[in-house]
Amino acid sequence: MDYSFDFGAVTRNLDPLFRGLWITVQLTVAANAIGLTLGFVVALLLLSRSAVVRMPVTLFVEFFRCTPALIQIVWFFYCVPLIFNVFLDSLTMGILALGLNLTAFNAEAYRAAIQSVPREHLDASVALGLSPLQRILHVVLPQAVRASVPVLLTNGVGIFQQTALVAVVAVADLMYEGKSLATVTYRPIETFTTVALIYFAVSFPITQFVGWLERRRELAMAR
């Protein structure tokens, strides 16, 4: 192979990648804020005894879980303005698409965690005279969050990686800036290797932390 590697062409132009990383972090944080809050609400609706409430929410969850995130992003970017006459910037569209996608996956994590809350705890909260809202906030929510933290963190890492998909709608995230830099420098191998290492450097510590949480939880349950 006659190809001569030159990572200097990338290291001399790291500023665009760091700007893109900052956009990626914003997308990730905003999508997680949506997914963590709405996910719990959707999980409660999934457990509703009313089919009128439960069926539309189930359809929402299954739609976002069973269609590619790339299609969802493109749909929000192109179809929402045409159908609903709502015009938002591409970054906001990306946040909404990723946030709703994460909401669907987090809702399933929350639902499983809520169903694992011991019935005795709910009975005790009723005996203490807590209102339904107080039972949710002070009994169900803390235990559900604690039980689902590893899955929620894993989903959060996954959405960090999926932010790369917004590059197709011209959001200047890390992937978009990497593509631009590769075009300018004619160094796609070096550029995308560097981009991959940046994604890895951010994701790896979190995945290790998730593994540590799971091991600690298993030890606590074994006692």
Results as ranks from 00 to 15, higher is better:
E190C: 14
V210M: 07
G8Q: 08
E177V: 02
V139Q: 08
I189N: 06
P205A: 01
V139G: 15
F5V: 13
L38G: 12
A201Y: 14
S116F: 15
C66Q: 05
I34A: 00
T37P: 12
I71V: 10
V41A: 12
G8L: 02
R217C: 03
V202D: 15
G20M: 04
N155G: 09
T11V: 11
Q208H: 12
L27D: 01
I34H: 04
R54Y: 14
E108C: 05
L38A: 11
L100N: 03
V168M: 02
A51C: 09
T11W: 11
D6N: 14
L38Y: 13
R135H: 09
V140P: 13
A147S: 13
F40N: 15
A222I: 06
V210W: 09
Q208Y: 15
G211C: 06
A164S: 15
I159M: 03
V151H: 02
Y78L: 15
P56N: 13
A201C: 11
G99N: 01
E120G: 12
F200N: 03
L47Y: 02
H121D: 09
A31M: 00
V61Q: 13
D89Y: 02
P150W: 00
E62S: 09
A144K: 05
T194I: 05
A107K: 14
L197R: 14
R135E: 06
A51I: 07
P205K: 12
S4D: 15
A127D: 05
V74S: 08
A30E: 04
G94H: 00
F40R: 13
L130Y: 09
A170N: 05
V157R: 04
A124V: 14
E120F: 02
L152V: 03
T103I: 09
D123L: 15
L91Q: 01
F160E: 00
Q161E: 11
W22H: 06
G178A: 10
L46Q: 15
V126Y: 15
A196P: 04
V74W: 00
G35V: 03
T11I: 11
Q72L: 01
V145F: 14
E218L: 14
S131D: 09
S131W: 04
P205C: 03
M55N: 11
V149K: 08
S148C: 05
G20R: 02
C66N: 05
L165Q: 04
A113Y: 10
F84C: 06
Q26H: 02
Q208C: 14
S90T: 06
A69L: 01
Y110L: 07
F84Y: 10
F204R: 02
I159N: 01
V80F: 00
I23V: 06
P132F: 11
A147W: 05
T28L: 03
G158H: 04
Q143H: 10
A112Y: 06
T183C: 07
R135C: 01
E62C: 12
W75F: 09
D89Q: 03
R217H: 09
E218W: 06
V53D: 02
G129P: 15
P81C: 04
S180F: 15
T183N: 14
A112K: 04
